[in-house]
Amino acid sequence: MLRCEDMMVTRGDFTLGPIGVEASPGEVTAVIGPNASGKTTLLEAVAGITGPSAGAVNLDGVDLHQRSVTDRAACVAMLPQRPASDLSLSVERLVELGRLRLSASAEAIEAALVALDLTAIRQRPVCTLSVGQAQRAHLARLWAQRNDSSLLVLDEPTAPLDHRWADGVWDMLTLHARSGGTVVVAVHDLAVAADRADRAWLLQDGSLIHAAIACDVLQPDVLGAVFDTQFEWVTRRDGSRWLVKGSGTA
């Protein structure tokens, strides 16, 4: 269980929080909000990359920032919004780095390479790959680092990917959550968030506006007030609903 307790993070003039919120194992939580609302700052704090200026981030009852480096790498893995793409390290070496502080596991590395379909380009330097391939290589690093109970924190993981791979990555994240893991993922595509997330945290200007099950947060009236844009549900031929942007401002 991930629990933020009155957490505040200060970055220059920007302050996030105070935020009190929880994410449970078995669930995928989407972090949504306009640009500069604090999504990346929140993700880096819950992943242990930056420490909060006040409050605490607890994972399974233990302050995340008090854990050892090895312990933290074993229980939390993060994929940032813009992972380094100018690497001359090979794809395979990048994936191996996911196990830097963990026991070496050829199976975990091979499984990650297979899951992201990278076996054919495993020896290629990351800097020679397309943006989408490089993103899959970084996702494979994350996948090699995880275990069934890990907290996975991802910042816009599917933005550089084509539709097939975007769907595939969402399937992997859902599978991880259903296996007992926790997933917190920032996403700009609100329709996808409504379709794939179990819960949603909605941020605006550094404050948490809503935190609830996804279908309650991802409502046209709630989103319209925050994004200053009209949203509406459309019903597809199979009867399912899809959230789309309307034609005007809210």
Binding site: G48, I49, A73, V76, P83, A84, L97, L100, R101
Partner: peptide
Amino acid sequence: HGRLDALLLDHASATSIGGS
């Protein structure tokens, strides 16, 4: 050598894998 390799990554990824 592993931590030196990790330095080549972005700060968030390097920190996440325990690259200090």
